[in-house]
Design a protein around this nucleic acid. Structure first.
Lengths: 217, 217
DNA sequence: CAATTTTTTTAGGTTCGTCTAAATTTATAT
DNA sequence: ATATAAATTTAGACGAACCTAAAAAAATTG
């Protein structure tokens, strides 16, 4: 297993993010994003290309290969787990975490990452609401969002729960809510953000807290 | 406030440790300790000397100046706090922590260090039993012990507090307890381990919890 | 105390990641 | 379609931290 430098990881992460909005990432875009100069980027791109991390064609921009994607996702996983830690355990404000998390994300220790994940209760989203890939590199995006993020009129399917305590699960059982249950949002009460929903033809009310702990899509 | 590189911090920490057993630290000793070559050490020593971190005389070895000591102690503080975190919170074995802690100790964020310290309950010793300097760089050995470890009849001087929350500090103010306050232990109540003490001629009672958070010697 | 060994420093070179300035390729616009 | 503008790459250099080999200083030893 090859190791990558702090700097290389930053380039890879940057290219991953920029790649979300355009298939080919340009030298200049990277330079701007990393606060560096285009010439420095070109040098690094040739190096990363030699290392099979990305596909680079002169003047045509760059695209991550599978290896590069996996490094990017591992780095993002670490960053977002550390952000959770800082906010939830060390009482940082969500706006103070970035600088520190960008240092912590380069610590090399798979055991540390996975232990931290477990210690935090395997969170799916970081304090900014960004999804955290799991150990296998899979994002929770396929879970949709928590119920409270949706609007009346939608017909959804429950995908997961956030709080998986026995208490909450027992409560859901009582409501006849299960994985894959179909749910229709009838309306949202203005005064307490509780939701009126239809489940199996039965109309029920769910508190805001409950909605914040149910993923649906 | 100047910042120091990962590498510089390692040299400084190494010199600090070697300086414990001999006043002048030799080039070769450093090279061996850091798994590098004497020539590389010489280069770095000249650089650190220029930065006022240590006193370097050709062929005579090296000795940290106040600035160097303070950097070393800050780094040691971070290393040992992280070791506590890894063992206590993430269930690492005490023999697995070194490699990871030596990465984590270079994270630059005073807020992170102090929050971590608080999160861990201001530990005085790491999992290997090594003392952890406090925020002011003072090692617990020179702080004496917490009050609850002493016996009646002793006349002591307050050296520090363990819990430095505003709440506790305000409470101490009310008791007229300050750094360097002289305190005499009159007796210890058997049933709740509270202490009757004389401060400035006034007799007061301190709860066990309070005593556990005041260092004296 | 002179010779040898050990330690340390100097000299010169390498890699990594950066830079500026100049050259080249691609894109845009008249 | 050709001129101009923008993006990108090349060339050459720099600082940091490292290296090897050779020179110099200090310590050891007969």
């Amino acid at each position: 297993m090859a190791l990558f430098s702090f700097t290389e990881e930053n380039y890879i992460k940057c290219i991953y993010h920029l790649g979300k909005s355009s298939p080919m990432v340009s030298t200049n875009a990277i330079a701007q994003n990393l606060n560096t100069k285009a010439a420095s980027v070109t040098d690094m791109l040739r190096k990363l290309s030699d290392k099979e991390i990305l596909i680079y064609q002169k003047y045509k921009g760059v695209k991550l290969k599978a290896l590069g994607e996996s490094i990017a996702i591992k780095t993002i996983r670490k960053q977002r787990l550390w952000e959770c830690f800082l906010v939830e355990k060390l009482e940082f404000g969500w706006d103070e975490v970035l600088e520190v998390a960008e240092q912590l994300e380069h610590i090399q220790s798979p055991k540390l990452t996975d232990s931290l994940d477990a210690f935090l209760g395997f969170p799916s989203y970081d304090p900014h609401g960004d999804p955290i890939p799991n150990k296998q590199g899979v994002f929770p995006s396929s879970l949709g969002k928590t119920l409270d993020a949706y609007k009346p009129g939608l017909k959804l399917k429950i995908t997961a729960v956030k709080d998986s305590s026995p208490e909450f699960l027992r409560y859901l059982e009582k409501l006849k809510i299960d994985l894959k249950t179909k749910i229709e949002i009838i309306e949202i009460e203005d005064f307490d953000q509780s939701m009126v929903v239809k489940i199996d033809g039965v109309v029920r009310s769910l508190s805001q807290v409950t909605c914040q702990n149910i993923y649906a899509q």
